[in-house]
Amino acid sequence: MKKNKGILRFFSILGIVIIVGVAAFGYAFLREPEAPSVGLEEPSVMPATEVTQTSEGQPTAESAPEENISKENSQSSIFRIDSSQSEARFTLNEVLEGQPTVVIGKTRQVTGEFRVEPDQSQVEVGEILVNARDLATDNTFRNRAIHNRILDSNTFEFISFGPTDIILLPDEVNIGEEIVFEIAGALTIKGVTQQVIFMAKITPISEMQIEGHAETMLAYADYGIKIPSVERVAEVDEEVLLEIDFVALAISE
């Protein structure tokens, strides 16, 4: 009789542990993610930069104190990303309930600035910020998994890209003509920073507006990101496409 009571007690405790574990797992996925803490529409004007040379002789940008802005730099044109006309997104493939599915997460909470030198010989790109808490796909459950488990955006609210290169422009830049280039920099996701290269293009629409696109493919595991195993989801890509489409408008320093 005592043996039977011991067995019953064991299974009772086991049942409680399982229930608590399932509840905790469900809460981690289903709890309401935190909303963005700030808007990204009005970043401060980017500081001036000093240009150094790499061992290969390529120019790179280093931040300089704002008070050291030279007279020439003070006449530079500053363009700021207009969040209302811009979008950052990620894209990857998965099999959802047996059907091939393209997952796209989007946000307009993206900001950054560009400094164009007076002689239009080069463009300096400031830090680009994306609010991870605002990323959304077409599935509420997936969104909560992304924010609560995959990106942990409650802790790591922003994704940032800090370019390390100055963009050298062609000798002649014409309104409406696209400029294609690569831009290297440090991409930080979920607190992990890796060096990446974006393929980019910009088009001067007018003296007051620049439009552009940049993209890169990366292995999200390099950032410590893991996709939780869910019964309905299979064959998730190991690489993700990151993109930004932007409109940048001229501002006064």
Rank of each mutant, 00 (worst) to 15 (best):
K2N: 13
N4Y: 12
G6E: 08
I7F: 09
R9S: 08
I13T: 07
I16A: 09
I18N: 04
I19E: 01
V20E: 04
G21L: 04
V22G: 03
V22I: 13
F25C: 10
A28W: 09
A28E: 09
A28Q: 09
L30D: 03
L30K: 09
L30N: 07
E32A: 11
A35F: 09
A35S: 14
A35C: 07
A35W: 05
A35K: 15
V38P: 00
G39I: 10
L40V: 08
L40N: 04
L40Q: 02
E41K: 11
S44V: 14
V45M: 06
V45D: 04
V45I: 14
M46T: 10
M46K: 06
P47D: 07
A48V: 11
A48D: 05
E50Q: 11
V51P: 02
T52C: 11
Q53Y: 08
T54N: 11
S55H: 08
Q58I: 10
T60C: 10
T60G: 14
E62A: 14
E62Q: 15
A64D: 04
P65T: 07
E66Q: 10
S70D: 06
K71C: 03
E72A: 13
E72W: 12
S76Y: 05
S77R: 13
I78T: 09
R80V: 12
D82A: 12
S84T: 14
S86T: 04
E87G: 02
R89S: 15
T91Y: 05
L92N: 05
V95T: 14
E97S: 12
G98W: 05
Q99T: 15
P100E: 11
V102C: 01
I104S: 07
G105L: 04
K106N: 14
Q109Y: 11
G112H: 00
F114A: 07
V116Q: 10
P118Y: 06
E124T: 12
V125A: 15
V130A: 06
R133D: 07
D134Y: 05
A136M: 10
D138E: 14
N139V: 09
N143Q: 03
N143D: 13
R144C: 01
A145C: 06
N148Q: 06
R149Y: 05
N154F: 03
T155L: 08
S160M: 02
F161S: 01
D165G: 03
I167D: 00
E178L: 07
V180F: 04
A186D: 13
A186F: 03
A186K: 08
I189P: 00
V192C: 02
V192Y: 00
Q194T: 06
I197C: 03
F198N: 01
K201D: 08
T203S: 07
P204E: 06
E207S: 12
Q209M: 11
I210E: 00
I210P: 00
E211K: 15
G212W: 00
T216M: 08
A219I: 10
A219Y: 06
Y220H: 10
Y220D: 00
K226G: 06
S229Y: 13
S229C: 03
V230L: 15
E231F: 09
R232I: 14
A234T: 15
A234V: 11
E235G: 08
E239M: 12
E239K: 11
L241P: 00
I244A: 09
D245V: 05
V247C: 01
V247Y: 03
S252Q: 12
E253A: 12
